[in-house]
Computed example of a mutant assay.
Amino acid sequence: MYEKDDPRSSLATAARPDTGDAIAAPQYFDLRENPVVRAQNVILVHTEARAGDDLDNGTLEGELAIIVTGASPAFTVVTEDGATNVDEPGLVVVPPGASRISVRGDGPLVRLVEATEPAWRDRPANADAYAQDHPRVALLRRWPEPAGKPRVRFYPLSQVPDEPGRFGRIFRTRSFMVNFLPEQHGPRDPRKLSPHHHDDFEQLSLAVQGEYVHHIRTPWLTDSTTWREDEHVRIGSPSVTIIPPPTVHTSEASDPGVNQLIDIFSPPRTDFSEKPGWVLNADEYPMP
């Protein structure tokens, strides 16, 4: 349930009959210990980059997305078409093909690639968790090609002022949706949480600052041997929590300083995309 002033309270939610398939368990990863992890459709690569690093992304069949935070270093994306310099927070989208990242400082970089990419599919620490597809998660079908010729696209957060009624700062690619949520200064009010569920997609909650308690409840199915206790897992940053459908979940910032989450979905969310003005690069990345 959302508070009335939460922008998500107006989302259309389809009522679907339950499939009866087993519900996957949530997964929690400290990215300093497990820098490459995956969900059903996306691999997340966390790198503590250093000045002078040359990161080879491989030759990819799909797009690459690079999440740039306030702590990230400046860098240059190099493709066969040239070089693109990035020196502020935002989302970078690199077209299919070969690319490299030349790093010009110290700090974290997060890359997203499709889970089927040959150069990356065997690297995740939790690859065994997806030895078989999770039946409750819709498989990725790429959304339409972006407008214009293939090129590196950079969407800086500095060009997106806060706007009442919009939920975060959302960008999409053909395969991913990334939502830069606002910084939370101090703990979240425990009386104003937002437990909710998703019917058929996973949520990756990437903690880039502070600490969170992820509250997750697995619904009861007819087979009581599959029931799980509610989870209230405290995890710092950098970390990623993979939240499976249709678990009920909400995340509670708990650090007295600055807390920030970035939510990742694959494929892009239709419900967010249908909200006018929510997806900030919708003019370049059309819906199906």
Results as ranks from 00 to 15, higher is better:
L44S: 07
G165V: 00
P17R: 11
M287S: 13
V258F: 01
W227P: 03
Q132K: 09
A253N: 03
F176P: 00
R151K: 13
G277Y: 02
N281V: 01
L55P: 05
Q40H: 14
T226S: 14
P35G: 11
D189W: 15
L31A: 02
L157G: 02
A129K: 07
A71E: 15
V37C: 04
L91M: 03
A49H: 07
D200L: 04
A83Q: 14
A22N: 10
G82Y: 12
N259F: 01
E88T: 14
D263W: 00
N85G: 09
G70C: 09
T241Y: 04
R121E: 04
D230Q: 12
D81N: 14
G20S: 11
T247Y: 03
D200Y: 04
V86N: 10
D199S: 15
F171A: 01
L206W: 03
P35K: 11
R8C: 00
A125D: 07
G97N: 13
I66C: 13
S158M: 03
K192F: 11
A282C: 06
E80A: 15
L140D: 07
W143N: 00
L31Y: 01
A131K: 08
G62D: 12
P187K: 02
E183V: 08
N41E: 06
A25R: 11
K149H: 06
L60H: 07
R38G: 06
T79C: 09
S254G: 03
P17W: 08
L139D: 09
L140Y: 05
S237Q: 06
H214Y: 14
S254W: 00
T59Y: 03
E3K: 12
V137I: 13
P161D: 07
K149S: 10
T84D: 08
D271R: 01
V86Q: 09
D122Q: 12
K192T: 15
M287E: 12
H134K: 12
D199A: 15
S273K: 01
S194Q: 13
E145A: 13
A147Q: 10
F75N: 05
L181C: 03
E48I: 07
D223Y: 14
A74K: 09
T250S: 08
F171D: 02
R191H: 15
H215Y: 13
A127G: 04
A74F: 07
W143T: 01
G277R: 01
P286S: 06
T84N: 11
N57K: 05
V86Y: 11
I264K: 01
R38E: 10
E33H: 09
A65H: 02
E202W: 00
H197P: 06
G257E: 03
D230K: 08
E88M: 10
R16Q: 12
